[in-house]
């Protein structure tokens, strides 16, 4: 199963900044290194610039300053090798293709091959067994997001970018995914960047949590997560995890307070 895996790259952002053409400053110059083969979570208030940061790493948005290196090369080189996958915040499945069809399209685009059984396994993994031939219009919002996750995994990318992949997924399924997905990216040793709104998810899934300030995004805190793996479902309730979650929350509200005092005062 481990054939044809792109080796996980290290991602280095140097003074990376983004100001949109309209003048919106989304990301303040950021220096950040995402370690190879590890999972890093990005948390921050809505609209702070998380998706923008991720899109720059994916080579979909040009930085207005600074640079990104993926495994020592610019994002474009990684793109050309189809060395990364993005699970977008909006699942962006093609409506005229089934779940399987969407996954196959990703493989075609990435010029990779995967056996039917491998695709089936992925579909099972995200809990869509029985829906392989279903079109997106007949899936719920959460099911679509899970299909997008399966699609992102299918090409065996060395770098996996997940933008709030569980946003519309129900709590129980989220927990199940939080159990199953890390197993895959650990087995493959993928470099994963996970944007999430859920603090406990960030802690449970990642090796490190980066807390961002409200827009324009700046790094407020960089918190290593040294909980042992594998992390069972109740790992979030251990004392160590609880402490980490509290700390992330504290940093988040500190960041909020700095930019928006009245709200934090309540």
């Amino acid at each position: 199963m481990a054939h044809d895996v792109t080796p996980p790259p290290e991602v280095v952002c140097t003074s990376l900044a983004k100001t949109f053409a309209g003048g919106t400053e989304a990301v303040r110059p950021i220096d950040l290194t995402f370690a190879a083969g590890r999972t890093t979570a990005l948390v921050g208030p809505s609209g702070c610039g998380k998706s923008t940061l991720l899109r720059m790493v994916a080579g979909l948005e040009n930085p207005s300053a600074g640079r990104i290196e993926i495994g020592g090369a610019p994002p474009r080189a990684t793109l050309r090798r189809a060395g990364l996958s993005v699970a977008f915040q909006d699942p962006s499945l093609l409506p005229w293709r089934s779940v399987r069809g969407n996954i196959e399209l990703a493989l075609t685009l990435a010029r990779r091959k995967a056996g039917a059984s491998e695709i089936d396994q992925l579909i099972d993994l995200v809990g869509l067994d029985g829906f392989a031939e279903t079109r997106p219009a007949e899936l719920s919002g959460g099911m679509r997001q899970r299909a997008a996750i399966a699609r992102a995994l299918a090409t065996r990318p060395g770098l996996l970018l997940l933008d709030e992949p569980f946003g519309a997924v129900d709590e129980l399924t989220r927990r199940q995914l939080a159990q199953d997905l890390p197993r895959i990216w650990e087995a493959r040793g993928t470099t994963t960047i996970l944007v999430t709104h859920s603090v406990s998810e960030a802690v449970l899934l990642s090796d490190r949590v980066i807390v961002l300030s409200p827009r324009p995004a700046e790094i407020v805190a960089d918190i290593p997560v040294d909980l042992p793996r594998p992390r069972p479902e109740d790992a979030a309730r251990t004392e160590a995890a609880g402490a980490l979650i509290d700390r992330v929350f504290a940093e988040l509200s500190k960041g909020m307070a700095a930019s928006n005092p009245p709200l934090a005062a309540q």
């Binding site: 793109l79 909006d90 962006s92 990703a106």
Partner: peptide
Amino acid sequence: PDSWFDLVRSYGR
């Protein structure tokens, strides 16, 4: 929608 083109681009096409 733009996101479909982002998808294509994200695989380097």
